[in-house]
Structures are given as structure tokens and as C-alpha cells.
């Protein structure tokens, strides 16, 4: 059984289809990145998973349960929305104590002390949350989300509105929690650098559909094997060299891109064969580079395809 299962999920608002046949699963202990542009339906997916919205079609399960109808199952799930879920007119410890009561946390005082120390807010425990900076509120929000030791935690844009230092702090905190508390993390984000650093698996949502769903390693490896840039000593040879490359069985495609050839290889191990074939055809090669694309490039490619109506 997966920690999170989404099968054939669709949902419309006022006749506008937001999610179309969305399916993915998240394994136990994974840090899962759910990517997509603003308005893609990421938050809608999370709200449906949490039982706040009903699915239009399809089925969702968290830890095998439907959180909409199962009050007790929500005890095993934590959530952090952008507003952190904190009362400004209560102290940091007071906010945590309130949620500890709602979740029935055993020995809440000890757990609150532990978490305030973890998020480096122990010395501000009695201060009103309204006096905190955005980063401090976010840290306290994360502490609140994991207060009851959930098995799955949903984090909706945890780095949104934070400066780079605070973003790094939140990222490190998520990684530490994932390791220390062994929880499944469902990270809803469009901070691609953050996702690439901390997530093991990602799904890219664009145009209401899942455009890619794989491990970060597989996605980036898949893109690495596709693209090779070749710089020629004689720029006038580029068009001819491109034709030659296209005739090779292991080359899926070739374009002249500025001063270089951009070859797409069907076989990830064929770079030496490409070089040998071009040299054998009389072209003088100055540089060959495997083009390493980041998750950002892969994401933008899928989003552009979706916006183009693909």
C-alpha cells in the first residue's frame, strides 16, 4: 500500500476543468515533489487528498483511507498551508499546545519543547506569534504540522515568501525531519531548485494533467542521455555535419543551435560513436559536451508543451 494514491482524479470549478485524469502514487518515506505553475491545480489536489474538497471523478487515498470521511485517519496526517495555521495573538508554545490538544498528543509539554528547540525558537516560546518574522512563522508552522508525529505531511509552498537564507533553512529542516521522523513528505512547490535538492520523486502537473512522474534521478538521467552539444572547428560545416549525424542509427535528432550542433541520442552510450562517425566523415571537432539539463529545464519543457496544447 502506498502512502498516497491518486487514481483518475478529475475536478472542475464552475465548468472549468482544473484536474483531468490525474494519477500518481507516493511511497512510504518518500519526499515527493508536486510541481506545476500557479493555477495548475496543485493546491486543489492537496485539498482533495485532505478531504477538504470532493473529487469530481476518481479516487484518492492517504494511508489507504479517505480523509474526508475518516476523522481518526487525519490524526496520522500533518499539513502546512501557506498561512501556517497559527494565531497571531497566541504565543508560539500556546499555538502548539492548542494543536497538541486537538491531536491528543501524549506528553505535549515535552514534545513542544523538543520541537521549539529543533526549529530554533525555544527562546521565543512565550512570545506572541504576531511579533514573529515570516521565516520564524514558517518554522513554527512546520513544527505545528509535525507536532503529532504524522506518517504523512503535506507542505504547500513551504518556501513561499521567504528570503534565500530562510528557504535554505526550511529545506534543511524538511530533510532533517524526513530522516529523523521517517515521514512521507508531499511537497507542493514551484521552487524547482528546492525540489531537485530534497525530493526523491516528482510529478509535474500542467494543464490539469500529469506531464511527468518519475524519480528525480530517472528524469534527469533521461534528459542527460538525450542531449549532446558538438562544437565544430569550421562553423560552415554545421549544416552538413547535422545531415551526417541524422543519418546515424543511434541519433534521434539533430539541430543547429547557434554555434553548435545539438544532437539527441537514442542510446546514452553512443557519444563516442557519434564523435567517431563525425571525425570519420572529415569534420574537425573542437568540443563535445553532454548537455546536462536541470529539473527546471525539464519542468519548463513540460509546461511549455502543455501551454502549447499538447
Amino acid at each position: 500500500m502506498s502512502a498516497v494514491e491518486v487514481r483518475g482524479l478529475s475536478r472542475s470549478f464552475d465548468g472549468r476543468e482544473i484536474l483531468r485524469d490525474v494519477s500518481f502514487t507516493v511511497g512510504h518515506g518518500e519526499v515527493f515533489g508536486y510541481l506545476g505553475p500557479n493555477g495548475a491545480g496543485k493546491t486543489t489536489t492537496i485539498r482533495i487528498l485532505l478531504g477538504l474538497l470532493a473529487p469530481g471523478a476518481g479516487e484518492v487515498r492517504v494511508l489507504g483511507r479517505d480523509l474526508a470521511s475518516d476523522d481518526d485517519a487525519r490524526r496520522r496526517v500533518g499539513v502546512l498551508f501557506e498561512n501556517n495555521g497559527l494565531a497571531d495573538r497566541m504565543s508560539a508554545a500556546g499555538n502548539l499546545a492548542y494543536y497538541a490538544g486537538l491531536y491528543g498528543v501524549d506528553d505535549p509539554a515535552e514534545r513542544i519543547d523538543e520541537l521549539l528547540t529543533l526549529v530554533d525558537l525555544a527562546d521565543r516560546r512565550d512570545d506572541l506569534v504576531g511579533t514573529f518574522s515570516t521565516g520564524m512563522k514558517r518554522k513554527l508552522g512546520i513544527a505545528r504540522a509535525i507536532l503529532h508525529r504524522p506518517e504523512v505531511v503535506f507542505l504547500d509552498e513551504p518556501s513561499s515568501g521567504l528570503d534565500p537564507g530562510a528557504q535554505r533553512m526550511v529545506r534543511d529542516l524538511i530533510l532533517e525531519l524526513s530522516r529523523r521522523e521517517e515521514m512521507t513528505v508531499f511537497l507542493n512547490s514551484h521552487h524547482l531548485d528546492e525540489v531537485q535538492r530534497i525530493c526523491s520523486t516528482v510529478a509535474i502537473l500542467a494543464g490539469g494533467r500529469i506531464r511527468a512522474f518519475d524519480t528525480v534521478a530517472n528524469l534527469t538521467a533521461a534528459s542527460d542521455r538525450l542531449a549532446v552539444t558538438v562544437s565544430l572547428a569550421d562553423p560552415g560545416d554545421r549544416a552538413h555535419a547535422c545531415e551526417t549525424a541524422m543519418g546515424l542509427p543511434f541519433v534521434a535528432g539533430c539541430d543547429v543551435d547557434g554555434d553548435v550542433l545539438l544532437c539527441t541520442l537514442a542510446d546514452p552510450g553512443a557519444t563516442p560513436d557519434l564523435v567517431a562517425a563525425l571525425v570519420g566523415a572529415g569534420f574537425r571537432i573542437e568540443e563535445v559536451r553532454r548537455s546536462s539539463r536541470s529539473l527546471e529545464e525539464i519542468y519548463l519543457e513540460h509546461v511549455d508543451l502543455a501551454e502549447g496544447g499538447a
Binding site: D71, V79, F81, E82, N83, N84, G85, L102, R144
Partner: peptide, 14 residues
């Protein structure tokens, strides 16, 4: 207005 009600709705409270 603050949206904090959404977090409360995710607790195991009816």
C-alpha cells in the same frame, strides 16, 4: 479571512 480555518479542518475534529 486568514485562511487558518483550513488547517483546523484538517485536524481529527469534526
Amino acid at each position: 479571512r486568514d485562511g487558518t480555518i483550513e488547517t483546523l479542518l484538517c485536524t481529527p475534529v469534526s
